[in-house]
């Protein structure tokens, strides 16, 4: 069946097997290799992408449900001026190890920063926001520290408001 949707700002029209998951279409057909399969059961979050601005497990979304919607993967986040700040926080906090989980974490980080409405940042909030992304290398401490730092970053809020290159 034909599905039409936006990926990282680009309109795509694909003829797909309806049984395919969004993950398969993104990783295999569109070669967006940041989208990783870790479990295929929505438990690990390695396949996390933005679906209309919200983070979802692409392994649990039938690809046809993307029709008419907007998908952003890590590849697409790089087009946003705020990405370098996110990247630097992860780098400086030493939050990168094997990194198979990492693109999922970065997408969930962006979703959290973008969608969170609370006035103050606390660690529990950050942890809750990232609980759907499993990591086995880092023990999470450095990732949570990096995201806590980012949540306090005033400039990012501006960059979301003014320079977010996508509709949602």
């Amino acid at each position: 069946m034909i599905v039409s949707f936006k990926v990282n700002g680009r309109q795509v029209d694909l003829d797909i097997d309806p049984r395919k998951r969004l993950l398969d279409v993104l990783h295999d057909d569109l070669q967006l290799i940041s989208v990783k399969e870790g479990c295929g059961e929505g438990e690990c979050g390695a396949c996390t992408v933005l679906f209309d601005g919200q983070n979802v497990n692409s392994c649990l979304v039938p690809a046809f449900q993307a029709d008419g919607h907007e998908i952003v993967t890590l590849e697409g986040l790089k087009k946003w001026p705020g990405f370098s700040t996110i990247e630097r926080a992860y780098l400086e906090h030493g939050a990168v190890q094997c990194a198979y989980c990492l693109s999922g974490f970065v997408v969930s980080t962006v979703a959290y920063l973008k969608n969170q409405t609370e006035q103050t940042v606390n660690e529990d909030q950050v942890k809750y926001a990232l609980a759907g992304n499993l990591c086995r290398c880092t023990g999470y401490t450095k990732i949570v520290e990096a995201v806590k730092d980012l949540a306090e970053h005033e400039k990012l809020k501006e960059l979301f408001a003014e320079d977010w290159p996508y509709e949602r």
Binding site: H27, Q31, L32, I33, S34, K36, E37, T73, L74, E75, K78, E87, Y90, L91, E92, H93, G94, V96, A99, Y100, L102, S103, V106
Partner: peptide
């Protein structure tokens, strides 16, 4: 405080989703 000199040499390609794991190979 991390020491800037000790940033991981593989961090950036991983953060950008560019590192190729075996499932990312195109053959």
């Amino acid at each position: 405080k991390p020491n800037p000199k000790d940033f991981r040499v593989d961090a950036l390609s991983k953060l950008r989703g560019e590192a190729r794991y075996i499932r990312d190979e195109r053959i």
